[in-house]
Amino acid sequence: LDVAKKKKRKRRWGDDSERTIIPGMPTSIPSNMTERQTKIYIKTLEVEEIGRKLRTGDLGIAPLPEDRSPSPEPIYNHEGKRMNTRDYRMKKKLEEQRHALIQELQEINPDYKPPMDYKAPSSRMQD
């Protein structure tokens, strides 16, 4: 943990060019929305954004290797092909994030409809 903390500061702000526009979902919102409305709005926006990343393959992998998190030990299949590539790990992480967000949204708002391209993970470990 100490090693992780001593590594160089991570860059948090994205460039102006990385700005994303989600149709119909402004990123500047009225100040008179309630906490609940704001929460629902932001979570819905994140679900849309994750869907966009998964569809376009723009997975948010840092361009500079030093900005990326350390890779786990590689896992290979019987053909010697690496299974746990960064792409695979990012997609899996995004799908898990989206699933968690959708569950939260359905809890806050039973009328919430997940996006069409979302499928709930079928073989999940029981919590």
């Binding site: 991570k10 948090r12 702000w13 994205g14 102006d16 990385e18 700005r19 994303t20 526009i21 989600i22 990123t27 500047s28 919102i29 009225p30 100040s31 008179n32 929305m33 309630t34 906490e35 704001t38 709005y41 932001i42 926006l45 994140e46 954004e49 948010g60």
Partner: peptide, 27 residues
């Protein structure tokens, strides 16, 4: 709409009086 730690930044404006009183209870 900018990114911060890969999340999309959402903004609004806040009531300065409530800010000065550190009142963040929301609407």
């Amino acid at each position: 709409g900018r990114k911060f730690a890969s999340r999309v930044v959402v903004t609004s404006y806040y009531d300065p009086d409530r800010y000065s009183q550190r009142d963040f209870a929301g609407v």
